[in-house]
């Protein structure tokens, strides 16, 4: 462990949904520059963790805390968390008919800029930025004028999430099963884009069921989340073991 304050500290987090405990004492520390993978069975609480990080309503934090750069996030609205540098790539990105990608990202980017005391981007600069990042994800520029996620295939939606990440330049990225629904080529495109954005200042949490994406995005740490807790942590070899043996033997020995 390094001595400086970790970028993200999750301390003994307990979360209930409609009175039912889902996260039951989860601890996690992520340093700037690291990539952490979180794997775990269906229903373990992975997306719940992501939702709680993003500030989604309806989750009751019954104990514990989440600190970003040493500051508690819990009182912040979702937009304030975004301005603070958190980006969640959703497992199931919603369609927003009638709101174009350009309109949406103009509002998002300018809100980020306003939070930093910067003036809004002018249209030419905005379009140049969006086109550059679209190219990085090999997205046809026409998708910028389409409604957000409307009629996108599963793979296109996931690519569009990473595209937005590239545009917003966050410091902590949570990818919730961004790899599922991607074909081999798209997985490569997405992974390359993530790798291109790996910097010493940025951290990633990659939630996945498959070792496949971790071959492209090499994690520093792999965690197994089961029944609302991190039950094991290790290096990339843990993901290999999971791929070969499944969860059962690993959970049994934990």
């Amino acid at each position: 462990m390094k001595t400086e304050t970790p970028m993200l500290q999750i301390q003994d987090l307990h979360v209930s949904v409609e009175g039912r405990p889902i996260l039951k004492g989860l601890n996690l520390e992520v340093q700037a520059g690291q990539v952490h993978a979180i794997m775990g069975p269906n229903g373990a609480g992975k997306s719940t963790l992501a939702a709680v990080l993003a500030g989604k309503e309806g989750y009751e934090i019954t104990a514990g805390d989440i600190l970003l750069e040493g500051q508690s996030l819990l009182e912040l609205s979702p937009e304030e968390r975004s301005h603070a540098g958190i980006f969640l790539a959703f497992q199931y990105p919603v369609e927003i008919p009638g709101v174009s990608m350009v309109q949406f990202l103009r509002a998002a980017l300018n809100a980020h800029r306003a939070a930093k005391g910067l003036d809004p981007l002018d249209t030419a600069d905005l379009m140049a930025l969006l086109k550059e990042k679209a190219q990085l994800l090999k997205l046809d520029p026409s998708f910028l004028t389409r409604s957000v996620n409307e009629g996108f295939s599963g793979g296109e939606r996931k690519r569009a999430e990473i595209f937005q990440m590239a545009v917003l330049d966050p410091s902590l990225v949570v990818l919730d099963e961004t790899d599922s629904g991607l074909d081999i080529d798209a997985l490569k495109v997405v992974s390359d884009a993530v790798n291109a954005l790996r910097t010493p200042e940025r951290a990633f949490i990659v939630i996945t069921h498959y070792y496949r994406i971790l071959q492209h995005i090499r994690p520093d740490v792999v965690h197994i989340l089961a029944d609302g807790r991190i039950v094991r942590s290790g290096g990339p070899e843990l993901a290999v073991a999971l791929e070969e043996k499944g969860y059962e033997p690993l959970l049994a020995t934990s």
Partner: peptide, 23 residues
């Protein structure tokens, strides 16, 4: 879920509501 999506990308709630209303 639409509101959350917009907010999670940084759009303030009031503006996000207006965007959805406009759409």
């Amino acid at each position: 879920d639409m509101l959350l999506y917009l907010q999670a990308r940084g759009v303030p709630e009031a503006q996000a509501r207006e965007m959805l209303a406009g759409a």
